[in-house]
Design a protein around this nucleic acid. Sequence first.
DNA 1: AATGAATGAGGATTCATTCAT
DNA 2: GATGAATGAATCCTCATTCAT
Lengths: 203, 203, 203, 203
Amino acid sequence: MNERSFILDSIMHNKHDLILRAAEKIIAAGGIQGLSMQQVANEAGVAAGTIYRYFKDKNELILELRRDVLAQVASAILADHDKGTLEQRFKRIWMKMHDYGKQRSPANLSYEQYAHLPESNTDEIRQLEMGLFAPLQQLFEEGIKQGLIQPLNPRFLYAIAMEPSMALARSIRRGLIEYDEKDITLACDICWRAILIPNTPTN
Amino acid sequence: MNERSFILDSIMHNKHDLILRAAEKIIAAGGIQGLSMQQVANEAGVAAGTIYRYFKDKNELILELRRDVLAQVASAILADHDKGTLEQRFKRIWMKMHDYGKQRSPANLSYEQYAHLPESNTDEIRQLEMGLFAPLQQLFEEGIKQGLIQPLNPRFLYAIAMEPSMALARSIRRGLIEYDEKDITLACDICWRAILIPNTPTN
Amino acid sequence: MNERSFILDSIMHNKHDLILRAAEKIIAAGGIQGLSMQQVANEAGVAAGTIYRYFKDKNELILELRRDVLAQVASAILADHDKGTLEQRFKRIWMKMHDYGKQRSPANLSYEQYAHLPESNTDEIRQLEMGLFAPLQQLFEEGIKQGLIQPLNPRFLYAIAMEPSMALARSIRRGLIEYDEKDITLACDICWRAILIPNTPTN
Amino acid sequence: MNERSFILDSIMHNKHDLILRAAEKIIAAGGIQGLSMQQVANEAGVAAGTIYRYFKDKNELILELRRDVLAQVASAILADHDKGTLEQRFKRIWMKMHDYGKQRSPANLSYEQYAHLPESNTDEIRQLEMGLFAPLQQLFEEGIKQGLIQPLNPRFLYAIAMEPSMALARSIRRGLIEYDEKDITLACDICWRAILIPNTPTN
DNA sequence: AATGAATGAGGATTCATTCAT
DNA sequence: GATGAATGAATCCTCATTCAT
C-alpha cells in the first residue's frame, strides 16, 4: 500500500465508511425512497455484493447511517458547548445548529430524511438522540436551577427555543428566505429571551 | 345509483376522493414507502386499474393527496382566524395547529410524510402553502404595522412562533412528553410574546 | 374466447396448471436445483411475475407440484386396483408401478426428485402418501387376514414386494438393463410369492 | 509439521479430505441445495479460496465427494464378503447394507442426495458403482452357476433382493417404522429365498 | 500454499402500469 | 367506466469464483 492510499485511508479509512458516505449522498439527493443498493454500490465504486460484507442488509445500512449522521450532527453542534455563560453556551449551540442546518451537505440533507420515518423511531435511536443532546438538556436544567430559565420540561424548552433555529435554516437552505446575519442574530436572541423567566434582566 | 349511495356521495362524493382517503390512510400507517397501488385499491375497494382513471400515475396520486391534505390542514387551522384581537387570533391559530398536530388522524400522520420529501417541494406546493397560510402572514403584517410585532420577515416570525406549536404536538403524539394543558397554554403565550416588540404590554 | 382455447382449457384449463407443468418439466430435466422461476416462466410462456399470482413463492410452487405429481402417480398406479383376486390386484399394481416408473415423463422424472429432499418430508406429504397408497395397504391387510401374506407391517411388505418394481423401472429407464417382458413378469411373480406365507400354494 | 499433526494426518491426512468431510456433513444436514462453498470453508476451517486449490470447482467437489462416499459405502458393506456359504455371504451383505443405511452418519445421509441427481449419473459413476458392487454380482453369478439362484440378470437380483434392505433402512431411519431385529432378520431371509430357485431346500 | 475481500452474474420477488374483457 | 390478470423492469440479496497480498 503506497503513501497516497495511506493518506486517503486516514480520511475515509475503509469501505464501511465509503459505503456509508455513498448512501448518505444518495439519500441527500433523492430521499430514502431513492436509495437502491446498486446505486450505493456505483456511488461508492464497489460491487453490489461488497456492501453485504459490511452491512447485513439494507435496513442495517440505513440504521447505521442514521446513527452515524446523528453523531456527526451532534459533534458539529456541541463543539465547545461548555465554554462561557449559559447565554453564550445557548447561543453558540443555536448558531451552530443553524449553520449546520443551512448546509447542503449530504449529512445534513440526509439527516432530515430519517427523522420522519414512521416505523424507525426505535428506542435505540431515541436513546441515541437523548444522549447526544444531553449537554443541551443539562444547559436548560442549569438555567432552571439558577432561576433564569422557565421551569419547563426540557423538551418544551427545546421546542420553543431550538426548533426555530432548524426551521430557519431549512427555509434559508431552500431559498425561501434570504440569509441576513443581523436577522439571524436577532432571531437567536429572541429564542433565548423567550425561555427566560420574564423581568429577568439578561445583561 | 340509489338514494343511499347518493347520500354517501355527499360525504365522499366520488372514487377520486375514495382513493385519496385510502392512500392517506396507508401513508399514515406505513409512510410513503409503504404505499403500493394494490394496497390503495384494496383499501378503497376498487380495482387497481381504476386508480388510473382518476390519477395519471402514482406520483400524481401523491401530489394530489398532498394538495388535499394541505387544504385540510389549512381549513382546520384557520377556522375563525379573523375573529378577535391579534393576540386572540394568533393564539387561536397556534392552539388549533397544536391540536391538529397532536392527532393520529390519517390526514395529520400523512402530512408529515410529504414535508420532507427532497424532490417534491415544487413551486406549485410552495404557492399552495403560501396561499393557505396567507391569513397567518396577514396577521403578522398587521401586527408589524401596529408596532406590536417585530418587523421581521413573516417566515422568521412563523419559524419562531409557530414551529414550536407543531414540534410540541409531535412530541406529545409520539409519547415523548405528556400533555399538560397549562404548560401548552404557557408555551403558546411564550411564543406570542417572543415575537412582540419588547416592553410592549400585551394586556 | 374461441372454441379452440375452450378445448385447450379443458386440457390445461388454467395458468396454475400451465405453470405446474412447466416446473415439472424443468425439474425432470435438471433437478430441483435447476429450477429458476424465470425458467418456469419462459417454459410456461408467462411473465415471471405471473407465477406469483398463482403461487405464494417458490416453495409453495414446489410443494404444490409435489402434491400434484403424487396424485398423478397414485391415480396412474391405482386404476382398477380393486378388481380381481388379491394376486391379480397386487400384480396389477406392481406392473402399473413398474410401467409408470419406466417412463421418461416429466411427472415421473420429477417425482424422484422430491422423494429425497431432506427437509421436505413434511407430515403433510407423509399423510398424502399414506392416503394415496391406502389401497395397497388394504390389500396387504386383507392378505394377512386371509392367512395368505406374512403378518408383517405393511411398510415391510411394501419394501420387500414393491420397491423392486420401482428399482427395476429405474434401471430400465436409465438403460442399465434391457427391458424383457418375460423377466419383468417373473420378477413380479417373485415379489408376490416373496411375501406369501411359505408352503401356501398360490394357484 | 509436528508429531501431533502427523498423527492427525494419518486420520485425515490433508485438506483435500478435510474439505470433503465438511461438504459431506453439510450435505447430510441440508441436502445438496444447502451446500455453499463458504459453508464448506467454515466447516472445514479453511479459507474459501483454499477449496479451489484442491477442487476445480463446486461440481468437481461434489463429484469427488460422490466417489468418496461410494467407496465408503462399499467398504462398509463388503467387509468379509467372501467368508462362508453363499447364503451367509448374501445375508452378511444384506444386513451390513441395512445397518449402514439406518445410520444418520454424514456419509450415509449425503449418499442418498447424489443418487437421484438427474445429470450426474455419469458413466464414470456407473463404472464405479459396478466395480464396487462387483463382489455382490459375483455372488449372484456363483449362485446361478450352482443352480441355486434364479438365472436372472444380476441387476434384477439386486433389485429384488437388495433394494428392500435399503428401503427398510430408510423407513427406520425416518421413523416410519420401528426397528425390530426379528422382523429385519425375517425380511433378510425372505429376500434371500425370493431369488432362490423354488423347491430348492436352502439348509 | 493460504487467505478472505471483492466481484458480479443470477436468482427470487415486488409492484407500477397496461389492456382485453 | 370498471375490472383484475398479466406484464416485466427493478430491487434486494446470494454465492461461486478470482486474485492481490
